[in-house]
């Protein structure tokens, strides 16, 4: 384990800590009294006060922050204000939808991007390249929620290949569950994939102009073999960065896709929780989302060091 790794890890912890503080502060200034929202507008002041006390909301902010964080460390998140069930239960239930959805769409978008990006780069300035880039330019302009709606109209309503929404649950079997995630995954992946394809293409083309590519060709390596053996790995460096950032966008993009397809994932959970002033759910879900984004980018950084040997040297 290098200094590089340790340094990155410290940054990761600091970012997570910072994120928890920001989220907590945001929840503090979030207008609306949770007790009032739960009990309804015509609740008596006494009842409201009692509930506030019961929820622990009358204690000082600093104390509540530490209760939250220490609870997080031992996996005790408390109960949802609105549903009276443990927050962990709510989150793990939602994750069973959001996580596979994010992974599926990320995988789809990476495959799409690499295939299109490499193909276009290999046929630089030919008709196929120009066409693919035109399509991808359109692809990045389409709002993913609109694409989701169009997909429902076409594949669910007209062709009836996929359900238009809802989630049967994993207990109903693997395939029905996956089937209900396909359209949302495609909707999310198309837009991200189009963007990633453009970056892959331009990165490959940029690397193609490097001197070491000429060296490889001068050794007698064919054009094709140069692409796979020399260009690709160098070209992946910027692509990886974007993938890291995109994973965050995809994860949050699920908020929207879940809304279109009526999937009870993290996104719908957090939107509902905001409306219910179910602060305890909101802060934990948002922290979880932020943590996943930060952790994924941490691994991207580690991956960098694997791909690019120069990085390790600079950071030590």
């Amino acid at each position: 384990m290098s200094v590089f790794f340790v340094k990155r890890f410290m940054t990761l912890l600091a970012t997570l800590f910072g994120a928890s503080v920001v989220i907590f502060l945001v929840m503090e200034i979030l207008p609306g009294d949770p007790a009032l929202v739960i009990l309804g507008v015509d609740a008596t002041p006494e009842a409201t006060a009692a509930l506030t006390k019961e929820l622990g909301l009358d204690r000082p902010a600093l104390e509540r922050y530490f209760t939250w964080i220490s609870g997080l460390l031992v996996g005790e998140l408390g109960n949802s204000y609105a549903y009276k069930v443990p927050v962990t239960e709510l989150i793990s239930g939602a994750l069973k939808i959001t996580f596979p959805l994010a992974i599926m769409s990320m995988a789809l978008s990476v495959i799409l991007a690499l295939v299109i990006g490499l193909y276009a780069a290999a046929h630089h300035n030919k008709a196929s390249d120009v066409t693919l880039m035109g399509i991808s330019q359109l692809g990045i302009s389409i709002p993913n929620f609109w694409l989701a709606v169009l997909l429902v109209l076409f594949f669910a309503v007209n062709l009836r290949w996929f359900p238009p929404g809802g989630f049967p649950g994993w207990e109903e079997g693997f395939w029905p569950a996956v089937r209900s995630l396909v359209l949302p995954a495609v909707a999310l992946a198309t837009v991200q994939g189009a963007m990633l394809a453009r970056i892959t293409r331009s990165s490959v083309l940029e690397v193609y102009r490097e001197d070491f590519v000429r060296t490889a060709r001068a050794k007698g390596v064919s054009r094709q073999a140069t692409l796979w053996g020399h260009v690709l790995r160098n070209a992946m460096i910027p692509v990886l960065t974007v993938m890291g950032i995109q994973f965050g966008n995809l994860l949050v993009g699920t908020v929207i896709a879940e809304n279109v397809f009526h999937l009870p994932g993290l996104g719908s959970t957090v939107l509902k929780a905001i409306n219910n002033r179910d602060i305890i759910v909101v802060e934990n879900v948002v922290l979880l989302l932020a943590a996943i984004v930060v952790i994924v980018n941490f691994f991207v950084d580690i991956l960098y060091a694997v791909v690019d040997p120069r990085l390790k040297a600079h950071d030590i």
Binding site: E210, D211, F212, R214, T215, A216, R217, A218, K219, G220, V221, S222, H230, R233, N234, V307, D308, P309, R310
Partner: peptide, 24 residues
């Protein structure tokens, strides 16, 4: 030509700093 390059004609370039692949 691929069989000739590097085999029967070889070349050294001007920029040693960038002529080698940084990741290998």
């Amino acid at each position: 030509m691929c069989r000739i390059r590097g085999n029967r004609i070889a070349m050294i370039f001007q920029e040693p700093m960038t002529s080698l692949n940084p990741v290998h």
